[in-house]
Design a protein around this nucleic acid. Sequence first.
DNA 1: CGAAAAGTATAGCACAAGCTATTTATGTAT
DNA 2: ATACATAAATAGCTTGTGCTATACTTTTCG
Lengths: 133, 133
Amino acid sequence: MTDSANRFARAREKQAAALLEDYVELIGDLIAEFGEARVADIAERMGVAQPTATKSIARLKREGLATSRPYRGVFLTDAGAAMADRVRARHRTVVEFLIRIGVPEHVAELDAEGIEHHVSEVTLRRLAGFLRS
Amino acid sequence: MTDSANRFARAREKQAAALLEDYVELIGDLIAEFGEARVADIAERMGVAQPTATKSIARLKREGLATSRPYRGVFLTDAGAAMADRVRARHRTVVEFLIRIGVPEHVAELDAEGIEHHVSEVTLRRLAGFLRS
DNA sequence: CGAAAAGTATAGCACAAGCTATTTATGTAT
DNA sequence: ATACATAAATAGCTTGTGCTATACTTTTCG
């Protein structure tokens, strides 16, 4: 296995986790904002059709991150809520960092959405350290 | 369409382009290094099975980035070569930037592999500016 | 209370990217 | 020159994420 093969394999794994992270964070946001997370709202905010959201939520449930009952809202498990907190904090750090180095806020938000999922713990600490300096 | 829906949609598009970028850059590297890019070498460096590489190369050809003849090597079109140059430069900038803020080189390489595809032109210029300061 | 509207689920399709197993072509060496 | 080894292509499967169309609940309102 070459070094580059390992890099690519790791990037593929991160990518597979990215969608789950986005859904979990969004569900957490909706619950905080409205007290519940409806499938229709999740779909709208994710920018996908409603059945697509339903299918992804099924995957969240399979992975133990969320629960739901038919025709009722979606809820996060403890694991899901912990992931949501972690993801939200990382997202904020990345956005603030980009803004700090001079990226317009609007662009920072766009870029962060893709970048954040590939920022390791080590790099995240460096970004946070930079923000404090 | 909500703002967040747009962010997610854009991130999805970037992701779809990411694999093509990686292949094109790698093919460029192999040609520079060995004078040709063989499917087997591409597969090994990408960390995928050979038929997976063949399939992705078919997509590159469909999108006008590469050419190939059966049982012969893979070559980049002008568009492909231009993309390879652009991607390689961006990759270097992201890695160097991470190293500059204190991320260990090894981690910088790993993280950059995922991050680079989501760095916009605007952000790239900021990163380059930071490196010059 | 019952009908319309809204929300959710299900069915079924497409495509990308991964895999293994197999076939086909090329290149090499006896 | 043929046989063997290597390389590439093809067949066919899986999973994830997207879609539209349709069916089924639930809620709301006259």
